[in-house]
Design a binder for these strands. Structure first.
Length: 826
RNA sequence: GCGAGAGUGGCGGAAUGGCAGACGCGCUAGACUUAGGAUCUAGUGGGUAACACCCGUGGGGGUUCAAAUCCCCCCUUUCGCACCA
């Protein structure tokens, strides 16, 4: 044994061996059940950080554990390689995005290797590779042909800094998700995907995703934002026009005292023209619409409005009510118009108070609280002031009112979603070109599939203005129409990179297939992903888009599965000094430095031990040293016994005449194995490591015995092997090294997960806690499996218990067999 | 404001109705040693002379023989959504 553990030499040695022998390669297996373990593929930003390390370490443990447990495991990795940072590097430093990306991938691939992750590298894919984006384009065309990709002119979110539009999902509180620049509105013709067609299924299927964190499902539910109500038709007084209003509170429709339109509402121009206040109203509209999205939607912004001078008729009560324009009505939700029920809606109440609009209660609380003009009542209750419905429960009246309105053509039931169609056009260079041309005579024409890919030109120049260079390459822009062969112009926008990442998990099943995106049979063999691991920041965007794609592909007969990810694990962040590690905060822990100082095994072990996978944890270098120390302890234990055993003899059942201490030790080994197996299954990785540490501590106490007698030595031998096998998924290098030191010639990573010997778990005696009035007062040993009566009387015979009980009356005795006796005295 | 999670020693955390603080860090002492930032051994929630006993899982109340764990109210904190009619 060498004094110092030369992790760097050993780790790279084993990495080389694993690669050369291809032990992590996986192909469909005739007998073994499949298991698809996947971590979200990274953007090649240049280097791996601790967040990556944690993510991939967790995924690697899962993959390795399943492999040892007899599954045929697919565990691939690739690169989400299109995106803005590459382009920024080009603009700022003159490096072509393709070169920048290539260098970064090479560097990060090296870091992945150094971490000892068990990937099947033959399956590596990169989304910027023409062999990959060809199929991203093909997918776009599939969507296009099924009417799910369409082009329309719309108010879109424009980030002035990124010089591109953003999907709604990429706007966070009015700011660009990437660069936090304030997002502006622009009217542009853009490509959208009809994800809203799938809103109901995206929502309903969530209930079946039992392996997903509730938190993520709730976020998706909120994002889809389904709400059911009615669209009521309000006729305008004196004209034939009508305003439709969406409401979920049609039980309060008799309480409507005014309507409010969004400034953008299509009737606004018509109803205000000619009004004496037209100028003031136009001024108000200009002011509101000129405001940024944040200013307009912040709840700090006061609700303001102006009367239009027009009136509408309440379809139910027949009352004439004024029409207003308000800053708080959103043009893109529902019908862009709302009914004001100040008695039963907080916002309407504030608005009505401010402008002196009437407040008319129509629902009375069931408990006899007073409804007044100075209080809002938003809960259900009993209908009042609603001729024909008075006295009914408001929740019941909802249906009756809806029926009534539908019968008389006053409105209909309607469902609204907050989810909007996915805007995928990006005015950027470094992305997959949208495979479309615009022909003067044929209009929008799809590129035929056999002409894919539409290649992204690589020799381009960047202007500091930040505009996509594609517009300035005549050879790219000017083309021929595939239909009529006439002159045509290519679409110069590229696709949102989320399109690339919405299907990569399918491509991994057939990464090099050239004539198809994938082979249906192979994809169906591997999919769905059994365990997906990644950051919670993708809870909505990536995870919902991927679900949408998978459903679509299922519907057009290209995939069996309807959901891509059966189980999802969202890992917590790695913090330093209480905050997220980030370059700008200057609290980065450098992975390379850590690997150089401690080695991959130690870094992996610490990140997995520090806290449960789904919780945040604080980086602590002393903790890293603790992990390193533990590995040293394991290593010393094994070297101490390395030469004590004959390794051809592996039949543990044949252990002769175990002394009670030996049996006890062996029981500890197998109870640990039992706990570790159970905890791995539920991804409680930190407690797995703790349990192994505890076992190793016990084995240290057992060293003398193990040397002194043969039976104990055998127990030690078995224990050592099980310890290495249990640690193998966590620290693959050192366990591999020590496994070979023990005399095994094949890789530990090809071993089966050890079996729990149920007979070793047997315990003749158990410790029983004795409580008096719920407080622990004594303990005793008793044979296992003794009944209530036995334990009760045994407990009462204990001296200390006698003292406590004295001659007080025993009121009750509770017994938990093999665990506890609680004596209740007065 | 709404929704979800979290709150346990000096620190990271364990225990999901039955011994609170497993395991690790840190700290204390001892052994080995030329040396110790290596290693091994022991100790380490607070009060206390004490291994007795009392107190103790954000605060308050409750259910129970028994509560960190279940219920109610409140506080703090993190994350998500935020005028969605």
């Amino acid at each position: 044994m060498e004094d110092k553990y030369d992790f760097s030499g050993l780790e790279s040695k084993w990495q080389r061996v694993w690669e050369e022998t291809g032990i992590y390669h996986s192909d469909p297996h005739p007998v073994k059940p499949k298991y698809y373990a996947l971590e979200m593929f990274p953007y090649p930003s240049g280097r791996l950080h601790m967040g990556h390390t944690r993510n991939y370490a967790i995924g690697d443990v899962i993959a390795r554990f399943r492999r040892m447990s007899g599954f045929c495991v697919l565990h691939p990795i690739g690169w989400d390689a299109f995106g803005l940072p590459a382009e920024n590097a080009a603009i700022e430093r003159g490096i072509p995005p393709s070169d920048w990306t290539k260098t970064n991938i090479e560097h990060m691939r090296e870091q992945f290797r150094r971490l000892g992750l068990s990937y099947d590298w033959r399956r590596e894919v990169a989304s910027h590779h023409p062999g990959y984006y060809k199929w991203t384009q093909w997918l776009f065309l599939r969507l296009f042909k099924h009417g799910l990709a369409y082009r329309k002119k719309a108010q879109v979110n424009w980030c002035p800094d990124c010089q591109t539009v953003l999907a709604n999902e990429q706007v966070v509180q009015g700011l660009c998700e990437r660069c936090s620049t304030e997002v502006k509105k622009r009217e542009l013709k853009q490509w959208f995907l009809r994800i809203t067609d799938y809103a109901d299924r995206l929502l309903e299927n969530l209930d079946n995703l039992e392996g997903w964190p509730e938190k993520v499902k709730i976020m998706q539910r909120n994002w889809i934002g389904k709400s059911e109500g009615i669209e009521a038709i309000f006729k305008l007084k004196g004209t034939n026009d009508e305003v439709k209003v969406f409401t979920t509170r049609h039980d309060t429709i008799f309480g409507v005292t005014y309507l409010v339109l969004a400034p953008e509402h299509r009737l606004v121009g018509k109803i205000i023209s000619g009004s004496p206040e037209e100028q003031e109203i136009r001024e108000f509209i200009r002011e509101v619409t000129g405001k940024s999205e944040i200013d307009r939607t912040s709840d700090l912004t006061e609700k303001t409005g102006v009367p239009t001078g027009a009136y509408a008729i309440n379809p139910m009560s027949g009352e004439t009510i004024p029409i207003w324009i308000g800053n708080y009505v959103l043009p893109h939700y529902g019908t862009g118009a709302v009914m004001g029920v100040p008695a039963h809606d907080q916002r309407d109440f504030e608005f009505a108070k401010k402008y002196g609009l009437p407040i008319k209660p129509v629902i009375s609380p069931k408990t006899q609280t007073k409804v007044g003009e100075d209080k809002v009542y938003e809960d259900p209750g009993i209908m009042i002031n609603s001729p024909g419905f008075n006295g009914t429960e408001s929740e019941v009246a909802k249906d009756a009112i809806a029926d009534f309105m539908e019968k008389r053509g006053l409105g209909n039931r309607a469902t609204n979603y907050r989810l909007r169609d996915w805007l995928i056009s990006r005015q950027r260079y470094w992305g997959a070109p949208i495979p479309i041309v615009y022909c003067n005579s044929c209009g929008i024409v799809a590129i035929p599939e056999n002409e894919l890919p539409v290649r992204l030109p690589l020799d381009v120049e960047f202007t500091p203005g930040g505009q996509s260079p594609l517009n300035y390459i005549p050879e790219f822009v000017n083309t021929r129409c595939p239909k009529c062969n006439g002159p045509a112009k290519r679409e110069t926008d590229t696709m949102d990179t989320f399109m690339c990442s919405s299907w990569y998990y399918i491509r991994f099943t057939c990464p090099r297939m050239e004539d198809k995106a994938w082979d249906r049979e192979t994809a169906d063999y591997w999919l769905p992903v059994d365990q997906y691991t990644g950051g919670v920041e993708h809870a909505i965007l990536h995870l919902m888009y991927s679900r949408f794609f998978t459903m679509f592909l299922h519907d057009i007969g290209l995939l069996k599965t309807e959901e891509p990810f059966a189980r999802l694990l969202t890992q917590g962040m790695v913090l330093k000094d209480g905050i997220k590690m980030s370059k700008s905060k200057g609290n980065i822990v450098d992975l390379k430095e850590m690997l150089d100082t401690y080695g991959a095994d130690t870094v992996r072990l610490f990140t997995l031990f520090a806290s449960p996978p789904d919780r945040d944890f604080e980086w602590n270098e002393q903790g890293v040293e603790g992990a390193s120390r533990f590995l040293g302890r394991v290593r010393r234990l094994i070297y101490e016994f390395q030469h004590e055993f004959n390794h051809s003899d592996t039949d543990y059942k044949d252990i002769p005449e175990l002394m009670p201490e030996d049996k006890e030790m062996r029981r500890k080994v197998h109870t640990t194995l039992e706990k570790v197996t159970k905890d791995l299954d539920r991804y409680s990785l930190n407690t797995v490591i703790a349990a192994v540490m505890e076992l190793v501590n016990s084995l240290y106490q057992f060293r003398e015995a193990a040397k002194a007698r043969v039976s104990a030595g055998k127990v030690m031998k078995e224990a050592i092997e099980i310890v290495l096998l249990m640690l193998a998924p966590f620290v693959p290098h050192i366990t591999e090294e020590l496994w070979h030191e023990l005399g095994f010639t094949d890789s530990i990573h090809k071993e089966d997960w050890p079996d729990i010997d149920k007979s070793a778990l047997f315990e003749a005696e158990v410790e029983i806690v004795i409580q008096v009035n719920g407080r622990v007062r004594d303990r005793m040993y008793a044979p296992k499996g003794k009944d209530h009566k036995y334990l009760e009387s045994a407990a009462l015979k204990q001296d200390r218990i006698k003292e406590f009980v004295g001659n007080k009356e025993i009121r009750n005795v509770f017994v938990v067999p093999d665990k506890l006796v609680n004596i209740v005295i007065s």
